[in-house]
Each structure stands twice: as structure tokens, then as C-alpha cells.
Nucleic acid binder design. Structure first.
Length: 464
RNA sequence: GGAGAGAUGGCAGAGUGGUCGAAUGCGCCGGUUUGCUAAAUCGGUGUACUCUUUAAAUGGGGUACCGAGGGUUCGAAUCCCUCUCUCUCCGCCA
């Protein structure tokens, strides 16, 4: 067993008090200058030196950012910084001398300094204004892509990497999960709509057990692999949302609280990845392997009419999420990407579900990802594969925003790399689980791997 | 929700207007000493931005940062305001 529980370093007091978060202003408004170690996303130096690569990322991800403006602002920032530095330097020098000046010459010296003080204030204001505008833009600049990312307009052009298992041939007319769930009295969507609106559900009876079983099963498997299970805050501050790159940009997809300015997480990726934000880790602590479990809340704005039936697209669900924080090593980062993908596949295989893996194309890739693999599980009712898992690699994009760093063997401070993947998300996973394992009589056979977590039950049968 | 106390470097902890990036101790790194280890002793030890040197590593200069933001002042860790967080007591609560 490896992980945090065995290395409970006391939190540095500076960090505990939020000093490391200074980069992020309260309310998410960029008020502080970049010069104090501000995170952006991509290193401004990288953008400065590789503008074409960044431009290409914008084009391929279909994200519009005025890169020329970024570069221009960067130049303004540096000029302002230089002039502020020299003015402030002069002020410091002369102020220091003033203490030793003879009383008779004091008045004259003071006069000159008063003027200088005004100049310094002006230069400072100019600098912070430039830095604030730059930072606002910088937060929107997308991460560059892995050269292997396929080209494509949207998810229909994702590249299939492999298929595992084959869709079952039913000797009867299969029911969809809603029909099955209602018949088994483990699901009620109709009444949920009355109580809580669209895209909601009640699970009942063995439906509740089944959900808890897949979550528990997932957690156990992850713990076996050395992941530290984490029960996390479901309400977080905008710093964490911004740090994991859900903000700015994702405002419409997340629920925001009234009055306290907190956000309901859309995934435990947010609090788990942000767990050590603002800290400089010891290289010996890495990699951090964490498995978060939490409910997830999503507004699903703009999806009206899409996936309206059943448990596929809903406002609230439960998820176990695997998160890796590793050293800034491209190769290692890529290896972890494979590992977390394999972890999820292993669970699907254990649950005897057919699936395929796709390499998400550039047009379907989000701002922060370098590369993403989705797992799509066979859903008979869709007569196709439906996304159940998403494995992302971020390079240092999130770490930079989170100020999540480590000190390497040479004592050099570097940004970590972060990755994450679904382990299991319910009730979406109940769709293939119910549909693939259904029997002609409307009952559902519970796969062997889940039975220990179902009190030994082998099958869910219509009650009566 | 009410009352109070507090926030300084990896940690502990000084510092109430200039000589403070910050004493001292611990930790850590390096040297000396030393059968080994330990002890002793000497030196070093933050982060970031920027300018400059360099092919680069690095070196040198400047600036910022003492919870965050703002204010007073020629000059703020130090004075004032606002906020955040932590702790204690009371209330409430699962």
C-alpha cells in the first residue's frame, strides 16, 4: 500500500493558510500580477518561443484566442516590469539614504522623493494592469496536443484503437435499462422528474445495492493497485475549479452556490487533483496515486433533446475517479496514461462488459488535455458503444494553474504532471450492466466480480 | 450565529517605521575532524519575475513576496481599513 496515508507530512503552515493560493484572487477575478509566480496554463515563455505550436493547438481544438494580443501584452508587461524595477530601485536607494541625511538637507531631499514616489506608483499601476490583462487571456490559451492525436471534427471522428469482447446475441427481444429497471422496481425516473426535474432518477432496492457495489468494487480494485482512496469536498472554491481548468469556460456546466460562491464539483478530479495545490512536494512522494469518490453534479446546459431517455445523461451521479500526480517526465506521464486506461479496462472485463477504446480527435479535445482516451461500453439499447470512461493527460497544464510543484533530485523546483481517468461512474455504468446481463424473463444476472459486494446475490428478479 | 486570540522562511520562533529577505534554534546540503555511526566544528541553505552573461548549465545585477487585498508614508513584517484562514469559549447541529 502506497500513498498519502503513510506519509502524512504536516502541511507547511504557509500553505495551510492559503499563501500558495495567492495566485488566484477571491471571486476568480485576475487582480494580482503575474510576476509573483502566477500560474497561467502554458508557460508564457513557451508561448513566446513557440507561438506557432500554440496557434496550431488553437486551430485544431477550434478554440479562439487572440495570440497576437497575448504576445503583445507579454511585451508590454516586460517593458513595464523593467521600468518599474528601475524606478523602485532608485526609490529604495534614496529612501535608505534619507535616514542618514543631515537635518538641514532633509527638506530638499524629501521634495525629490515625493515626486519619485508618484512615478513609482504610476509605474506599478501600469504594470499590474498589463499583467492582469495578460493573465485573463492566458487562462484561455489551450494546451498543445500530442502529435499522435488524430484529426477530426467531433466525437464521430475519434479513432478506434481496439475492441474488447463482442456484443451479445440475444435470443429474444432485449429490453432497455429503463424498462428493465422499472420491471425490477429498482429505478424510477418518472416520479423523479416530478420532484427534481429532468435528467434525474431514483434508484431503489437492489438498484441502490448495485450502485454501491460497483463503487465499492472499483474502490477495492484501486486500493489493490496502491491508490489512496479519498472522500473529498463536494463544494469547492473557484481556485480549485480554475486550477483544474474547469474555469474559466465551464461556468455554464457547473452549479454554483448562492451566497458563498462555492461550486458543486462535476467530478472528484477537481478536489483530488487540487489536494496538494500550492505545495512544493518532495520528489520521493511522487507519484501520487489517488482514487476519489464523490457525487458529481452537472448542469448539462445546451444538451436539450440529447440523450433524454434513461440514465445516460443526468444531473447527478456517483463516480470513482483515478488521479495521478507524477514528475515532469513526458515518458513517465505517458506510461501512467496507459496504466490508468488499463485499470479501467480491467474493471470492465471483470464485469464482463464489451467495450472499445478510442483516441479522442483534436476537434473533440478540451482546452487542457494533451491527449485523451475514451472507453465506450456496449449498450444494447443504443445498439452501439456509449462513453463510460475518459482518460486524460494534461502535461503540466493543471499543475501550473494549481501551483502544484515538486523538488527533484537536483533540488530544482518543477511543475508536476497530472492525469486522470474514470474508474467507474454510476448510474451510467448500470446501463450496460443491466442491458448486457439481462435474461428473457426480465431478470438480470449479477456478474461474479460484483457478487461479494451484493451480499452474495446472483441475480435481480422482478419482485412479486 | 455571538465573543475573543492569532497568521513571519522546510519547521519552531524573534522582530512595533529605515541599518530586515528578515535574529536564534532545529532540519537539510557541503567541508573539516573521525575505525564505522554518532558527536564536534566551519560554511551554505526560500520562491518568482526581470535585466545581463552563456550554445546551455551557470554566474552577476535589480525587483517583488513576512496570510490576501487596499491605505498612510520619502520609506511598512512593523501603523490603519477590508477580507480569508486557524485556534479557544458560547450557541446550534448530523
Amino acid at each position: 500500500m502506497q500513498g498519502l496515508s503513510h506519509q502524512q507530512d504536516p502541511l507547511p503552515s504557509r500553505v495551510r493558510r492559503g499563501a500558495g493560493l495567492r495566485a488566484f484572487s477571491r471571486r476568480g477575478a485576475p487582480t494580482r500580477p503575474l510576476s509573483a509566480g502566477e500560474p497561467s496554463m502554458l508557460d508564457i515563455k513557451f508561448i513566446r518561443q513557440n507561438p506557432e505550436q500554440v496557434r496550431e493547438a488553437c486551430r485544431r481544438k477550434r478554440i479562439h484566442v487572440d495570440l497576437d494580443k497575448v504576445l503583445a501584452l507579454d511585451a508590454v508587461c516586460r517593458e513595464s516590469k523593467t521600468s518599474f524595477d528601475s524606478l523602485k530601485g532608485e526609490q529604495n536607494r534614496r529612501s535608505k539614504e534619507l535616514g542618514k541625511v543631515a537635518p538641514t538637507e532633509r527638506a530638499a531631499a524629501l521634495d525629490g522623493l515625493k515626486q519619485l514616489s508618484q512615478d513609482v506608483k504610476q509605474a506599478e499601476a501600469q504594470l499590474s494592469e498589463a499583467e492582469a490583462s495578460l493573465r485573463t487571456l492566458l487562462l484561455l490559451v489551450p494546451n498543445v496536443l500530442d502529435p499522435l492525436v488524430p484529426e477530426g471534427r467531433d466525437d464521430s471522428e475519434n479513432k478506434e484503437l481496439k475492441r474488447v469482447g463482442s456484443p451479445r446475441e440475444f435470443g429474444f427481444k432485449p429490453r432497455d435499462h429503463v424498462e428493465l429497471g422499472v420491471g425490477l422496481d429498482i429505478l424510477d425516473i418518472e416520479r423523479a422528474t416530478r420532484i427534481a426535474g429532468s435528467r434525474t432518477y431514483y434508484l431503489k432496492n437492489e438498484g441502490v445495492l448495485l450502485e454501491m457495489a460497483v463503487l465499492r468494487f472499483a474502490l477495492e480494485r484501486m486500493m489493490d493497485k496502491g491508490f489512496t482512496p479519498m472522500s473529498v469536498p463536494h463544494l469547492v472554491r473557484s481556485e480549485a475549479m480554475e486550477g483544474t481548468a474547469y474555469l474559466p469556460g465551464g461556468e455554464e456546466q457547473a452549479y454554483r452556490t448562492q451566497g458563498d460562491d462555492m461550486w458543486l464539483i462535476g467530478t472528484s478530479e477537481v478536489p483530488v487533483t487540487a489536494y496538494r495545490m500550492g505545495e512544493i512536494l518532495n520528489h520521493a512522494e511522487l507519484p501520487l496515486k489517488m482514487a476519489g469518490i464523490s457525487p458529481c453534479y452537472r448542469r448539462e446546459a445546451g444538451t436539450y433533446g440529447k440523450d433524454t431517455r434513461g440514465l445516460y445523461r443526468i444531473h447527478q451521479f456517483q463516480k470513482v475517479e483515478q488521479v495521478i500526480v507524477c514528475r515532469a517526465d513526458e515518458g513517465e506521464s505517458k506510461r501512467w496514461h496507459e496504466v490508468i486506461l488499463a485499470n479501467a479496462e480491467e474493471l470492465l472485463q471483470a464485469m464482463e462488459l464489451p467495450y472499445r477504446v478510442v483516441d479522442v480527435c483534436d476537434g473533440d479535445l478540451g482546452r487542457p488535455q494533451v491527449r485523451k482516451f475514451d472507453i465506450e461500453t456496449w449498450m444494447p439499447s443504443r445498439n452501439g458503444y456509449g462513453e463510460t470512461h475518459s482518460a486524460s493527460r494534461f502535461h503540466e497544464y493543471q499543475a501550473r494553474r494549481l501551483e502544484l510543484r515538486y523538488r527533484d533530485e537536483e533540488g530544482k523546483v518543477r511543475y508536476c504532471h497530472t492525469l486522470n481517468n474514470t474508474v467507474i461512474a454510476s448510474p451510467r455504468i448500470l446501463i450496460p450492466l443491466l442491458e448486457n446481463h439481462q435474461q428473457e424473463d426480465g431478470s438480470v444476472v449479477i456478474p461474479l466480480a460484483l457478487r461479494p459486494f451484493m451480499g452474495g446475490r446472483e441475480r435481480i428478479t422482478p419482485r412479486g
